[in-house]
Design a protein around this nucleic acid. Structure first.
Lengths: 128, 128
DNA sequence: GTTCCAAGACTACACGTGTAATCCAAAAGG
DNA sequence: CCTTTTGGATTACACGTGTAGTCTTGGAAC
């Protein structure tokens, strides 16, 4: 259990993504990875990385004169937090209304639907 | 089509909820409604209401010496915005991984599952 | 009419966040 | 050694947000 839920900002999550894809990384590698998907200044990325350190979302271990950074907050933990937050804030905490919303107001591709059916089937099989 | 997507904050959405439940309302009624679910100061609620006005998320029509407030941004629009944002930011824009996440990492109640199955069935019937 | 009051308008202020620039120390190069 | 480089630490600053307080103006009450 995380002692107290670590909350990260949108921009910070972009930096985490780099580390979730591969870790540990040097700050230089992180900067490069983030910049491949954005046009942020190197300084910006380093600032975000430091804030993540301060929040305890990543750890830094010395490696010679640099640090190697690795995520402490996992992608799954973060996805849970964000999903929960959306569900509670916007859909009264229930999953079905969320999906219903997507069905009625967003486009679900045929592929989406197929995937969802598979999932439900799998869930139900396990359930019984 | 909303001219440019209206973005509202978490606190502001609490005020919108009052208006989504019932509209039009006077500011006094809004304050009362919001305070039934929170302990915010009346001034706070009025500030949020004014910010929503400024953003074009609500409209105010004069009624004697007061205004009657009504939502312009609909609950459905807001739910779409928020859902989309979560999906794009956190799940690469696809619905199935979101549901898969809930399945693996959150608890889906039997009722959730039943509702989901019904939904998928309904969707598929329409689809073919 | 003058006074008082309430609804709304305007102002306040700290904190997080986006977005960097500057400062510093130790390694690397000469 | 002295200088340059470079990663990291510190500082900057505007904007949105949470959370109110103060100001103002047009009726309501005398």
């Amino acid at each position: 259990m995380p002692q107290s839920p670590i909350s990260i900002s949108e921009a910070e999550s972009r930096v985490m993504e780099a580390l979730w894809d591969e870790a540990p990384l040097t700050s230089e590698q992180i900067v490069a990875a983030v910049q491949s998907n954005s046009d942020w200044h190197e300084k910006t990325v380093r600032t975000l990385l430091n804030r993540l350190l301060g929040k305890g979302a990543v750890e830094a271990t010395r490696d010679g004169r640099r640090y190697l950074y690795a995520p402490l907050l996992t992608r799954t933990q973060w996805q849970s937090q964000e999903s929960h937050s959306l569900l509670d804030r916007v859909f009264g905490g229930r999953v079905a209304p969320l999906l219903a919303h997507f069905n009625q107001h967003e486009k679900l591709s045929a592929k989406d639907i197929a995937e969802l059916r598979k999932l439900i089937d799998a869930i139900e099989r396990k359930e019984r």
